[in-house]
């Protein structure tokens, strides 16, 4: 009986959380289904009298939103891969090996994690300019990857720490190289950590605005946040269109989240790995 009541309490709480967190997004959806008059209509209508997908159709066919999406997919995916490629080996070494300068390195990584890209906008701009990488995706990908590397190393190191040392000992006795140990023993065990860092990184890159604004010039290279903002107007913004474009921009990220989050939910519950 008690379990049943608790079940209901949890369900009700979940429903409440979902609703509260979704109010602004629901309003965004509602806006995106309206026409211009509906946007300004009073009293505000949650369900427009004549809902229409016209804004979505226009965003996908009449604007550059599909390009922006593609650019965002490309930049976020490449930056995530690069972050993990640089972060995994470092995290693994920092977790498994004891070497001189390890402590200071961990401290420095934590310290540079404190640096926000916003604070660094001006020097980063000069750096990318001198490297001749302004207005390229390469410049943006490198900068993004670097920003998330310390965080990624820290989180993954925690996951590697949780792998039982006996497993590595066994691999070493079998004569497995370090690379092989990482690839076939450690990585599968920290899959949830990889999924978690991938989600954190993707989300950070997908919604990043400040750096993309400063580092990209050509509309054909803009990412979704920039693209959505270039739909704004000095005088009379078509909010219904901005709302539709925002939603189109949100959808791939949410799909990626739903796909990836399964790994870090199921991964650590088997009881094989203890924290």
């Amino acid at each position: 009986m008690r379990g049943h009541r608790r079940w209901w309490a949890i369900t009700a709480a979940l429903a409440g959380v979902t609703l509260v967190f979704l109010i602004p997004q629901l309003w965004l959806v509602s806006l995106s289904l309206k026409d211009k008059g509906g946007v300004y209509a009073y009293p505000p209508e949650w369900l427009p009298a004549h809902p229409s997908l016209a804004n979505y159709v226009f965003a996908l066919t009449g604007t550059q939103v599909p390009w922006y999406l593609w650019n965002s997919v490309k930049v976020s995916a490449l930056a995530t891969v690069l972050t993990l490629a640089a972060g995994v080996p470092a995290a693994f070494i920092l977790s498994r090996e004891r070497f001189r300068g390890r402590g200071p390195l961990l401290g420095v990584l934590l310290a540079v994690q404190m640096l926000s890209p916003v604070v660094l906008l001006l020097p980063l701009y000069s750096l990318i300019e001198r490297a001749n990488l302004l207005d390229t995706h390469a410049g943006l990908v490198l900068t993004y990857a670097a920003i998330q590397v310390p965080f990624t190393v820290w989180v993954l190191k925690n996951f590697f720490d949780a792998v039982p040392p006996a497993l590595f000992e066994a691999a070493r006795l079998d004569g497995a190289s370090r690379l092989r140990t990482l690839w076939s023993i450690a990585l599968p065990l920290v899959a949830p950590g990889l999924a978690a860092t991938a989600i954190f990184n993707l989300a950070a890159y997908w919604s990043e605005f400040g750096l993309a604004l400063v580092l990209l010039d050509s509309q054909s290279r803009f990412t979704i946040p920039l693209g959505v903002f270039s739909l704004q107007s000095a005088y009379d913004t078509e909010w219904q269109l901005v709302a539709a474009a925002s939603f189109i921009g949100l959808a791939p990220m949410m799909a990626a989240f739903i796909l990836l989050q399964r790994y870090f939910i199921t991964g650590l519950t088997a009881g094989a790995v203890k924290g």
Binding site: P89, L109, L115, P123, L124, A146, V149
Partner: peptide, 17 residues
């Protein structure tokens, strides 16, 4: 194994800081 991470963080975070 450390070089990629250190290089990225060094060039794009430490130097600008």
């Amino acid at each position: 194994w450390l070089v990629p991470a250190v290089a990225l963080a060094g060039v794009f975070l430490l130097y600008p800081a």
